[in-house]
Computed example of a mutant assay.
Amino acid sequence: MRRNRVVVVGSTNMDLVASVPRPPAPGETVLGTAFTTTPGGKGANQAIAAAKAGADVVFVGAVGDDTFALDLRQALVDAEVDTENLREVPGPSGVAAITVDADGGNAIVVVPGANAQLTTLTDADLQAIADADVLLCQLEIPLDTVVAAARHAAAHDTVVMLNPSPVRPLPDALLAAVDVLVVNQTEAWQLGRDVLAAVPHVVTTLGADGVRYRTHQLLQSIPSPTVDAVDTTGAGDAFAGVLACEWGAEPLAALIFAGAAGALATTRRGASVSSPTRAEIDALVTAWP
């Protein structure tokens, strides 16, 4: 079975992850229990998740000219993501400072770095988008670039899937191009009903409670498999990437598959490294009653 051709236009960051017994209060210092550096960024995380699930993935993004850049690019290459459209720009790569508490919850501060310089799309970028089945975007890069990518995709019958994180007001030109909006509960509340109503397919992730899927004709709740979660970092990205891989004529089947991927991602620490393989997702879906 042919999997989707997915183009991800988005961010890549080095995640600086501190494990803590509990989140620090404002002005408080908390002793951590572990520290790791892991390639991440919502765009790269989603691209890797889609590729590991079987999609043919092209990543459009930017890294800096620092030492992090080599590891960020290699993480994509190792997942068999096409990096021909990953450009190098002067200055630092993006970074994310992340704390993960004993319950698996996380708090994240992102410094865009090179991602902020992704302000134009090349002819090669535009061609890749036009040739894709699905364009997947987030909001860790300049909004004008997301709008340009989405409008070009819509003009060439490429499905536009948007994960509007971090949340910001969405311009009408972007909303008009989006086919599938993937949000968590907080993002859904922040965007508001009018924005959600403007999109044909709205997928709201509910953590351990699963997923809510709405179209103009349907409202469906899909439960999540029960797993032993240790770190929720990257689970939403795994879900979005796998959903882009699977999206097509059977949205509910795609949502079940993506939900299993998101659940599996919580059983491992880290972001992109926590994305499961297709075989692992298949096994969980098959075993799930």
Rank of each mutant, 00 (worst) to 15 (best):
T205H: 03
S224Q: 14
A130T: 06
V227P: 07
A149E: 09
P166R: 02
W189V: 14
V182W: 04
A154E: 00
D144T: 08
P164M: 13
D144Y: 02
A130I: 07
V134T: 13
D133S: 06
A154C: 02
T205Q: 05
L143N: 12
W189M: 15
L170T: 08
A153W: 04
E187I: 12
F239V: 02
R193M: 07
H156P: 07
P142G: 10
Q185F: 03
V180S: 00
A148S: 09
T233A: 03
A176R: 08
L219N: 12
A229I: 06
L206D: 03
R214P: 11
N163A: 13
R168K: 13
I129G: 10
V178G: 04
L218M: 11
P171R: 06
H156I: 03
A173H: 11
P169H: 05
D228P: 01
A229G: 13
A132I: 14
H201V: 02
M161Q: 14
Q185C: 08
V160R: 01
T226P: 09
D231H: 01
V159M: 01
A149Q: 04
A154G: 00
D237P: 07
H216P: 12
A240K: 03
W189K: 15
L174I: 00
T204K: 08
D237G: 07
L136E: 02
G234A: 00
F239D: 06
A208D: 14
V159G: 09
L219I: 07
E140F: 06
V227Q: 06
A235G: 01
A177W: 02
V195D: 02
R168A: 11
A188V: 05
A130S: 10
V134F: 08
D231S: 05
A229H: 07
G207E: 13
A150M: 08
G210E: 08
H216L: 07
D179I: 07
T186R: 15
Q190K: 12
P223I: 08
L191Y: 06
S221C: 15
V178T: 11
A150H: 04
M161W: 00
V230G: 09
Q220C: 11
D144N: 10
L196S: 11
L162Y: 01
H201N: 10
D131L: 15
H156E: 06
Q185I: 01
P223C: 11
T205R: 01
V203T: 00
T215D: 08
V160L: 02
M161D: 04
A208L: 07
R214W: 03
